[in-house]
């Protein structure tokens, strides 16, 4: 237990937390945009897992840049189904989202098993290494804990201000928030509600796919069935907690990543006295507490989950 007082434990936990937060940030940022526009993507898990498989398989063939792009696009393809079925045809968002999750998990499981028969070697990539920033990364504790990340993590945190800026300072952002709060009024002001919702949903597909890609290319390096392990749903929790704010997504994702890393690192120290399963529960327990606190203050976009049916 003495190790808990050691600095190395905490630098490892914090940098691990940032790493584990990376996929969550991508996914939650995209989902924030979609939910702000009034579209609830329960299928986020599906976007993520298909992005995870696609990016890994393409990276093996064509390198990381094409791989990430393919991962993002594959998420967008599933989101396209969401757009077509829910935004255009007004099908129930929860049912379709649930269907897309099963579709994503099933399809990736099918492709993985087909390309990886029992005993065959799994496709594998080297996970993205840390970037060493001269000077900054050398700062004792702070540098090691906070500033030695892979560029995927930097990219994730870099996206946060961009999404904030788009949401708060651009016409598109205003339209997104308008169609999420009151689509009728937005329509009356000349906003193409269906178009804005479609774009927002596609963005959540792109970023969800990228979040999945972050799992395989930056965290694990291999694919296995159900590798997203419910992170798509965790992202939904993060969004409730931070009240649909882009900056909040960064904080909330980091909080969850930190809990995840803490559970994993504690396992090395106290596994004799505490069952590993109890440590594995830590992040989910944190998520539950977060969910309860978030619910008390939640003020969701008013038309979240409701389709827009224009006058015909």
């Amino acid at each position: 237990m003495g190790k808990l007082a050691e600095l190395t434990f905490w630098t490892a936990t914090i940098s691990g937390g940032l790493r584990l937060a990376t996929p969550l940030i991508f996914a939650s940022l995209g989902e924030t945009i979609a939910q702000r526009a009034g579209v609830l993507n329960i299928g986020l898990e599906g976007y993520m897992i298909i992005g995870a498989l696609t990016s890994l398989y393409v990276t093996v063939e064509s390198g990381i840049a094409v791989g990430l792009l393919a991962g993002a696009l594959s998420g967008a393809v599933l989101a396209l189904l969401m757009v077509w079925l829910c935004v255009r045809l007004n099908a129930n968002q929860v049912v379709v989202g649930f269907g897309l999750t099963i579709l994503g998990v099933g399809l990736t499981g099918y492709i993985f098993r087909l390309t990886t028969p029992l005993g065959a070697e799994r496709r594998q990539v080297n996970i993205l290494g840390e970037i060493h920033i001269p000077g900054l990364s050398d700062i004792p504790f702070l540098g090691e804990a906070f500033l030695s990340n892979s560029w995927m993590t930097w990219l994730a945190f870099g996206l946060v201000p961009i999404v904030w800026w788009v949401a708060q300072r651009t016409v598109f952002g205003l339209e997104v928030r308008a169609v999420g709060e009151d689509p009728d009024a937005a329509f009356a002001r000349g906003v193409d509600v269906i178009r804005v919702r479609s774009l927002a949903t596609l963005l959540s597909g792109l970023l969800g796919g990228l979040g999945g890609a972050a799992i395989t290319t930056a965290l694990v390096g291999v694919f296995e069935p159900a590798i997203t392990a419910g992170r798509g749903f965790i992202a939904l929790i993060v969004i409730i907690m931070v009240r649909w704010s882009a900056w909040g997504v960064a904080v909330g994702s980091f909080a969850f990543g930190l809990a995840d890393a803490l559970g994993a690192n504690l396992r090395n120290i106290v596994s004799d006295s505490v069952p590993t399963e109890a440590l594995q529960m830590i992040p989910f327990f944190v998520a539950l507490v977060i969910l309860i606190i978030g619910a008390r203050r939640a003020r969701m976009p008013k038309s979240l989950g409701f389709n827009y049916v224009p006058d015909r």
């Binding site: 099908a91 099933g106 993985f112 087909l114 028969p117």
Partner: peptide, 27 residues
Amino acid sequence: EGIPASLSDVIQALILLGFAVRYAPQI
């Protein structure tokens, strides 16, 4: 046949999506 059983999940998901659209006003 050595065809992954996940195919069943895919088919079930597709059926569910089809059922979701079934209730759509246009359909």
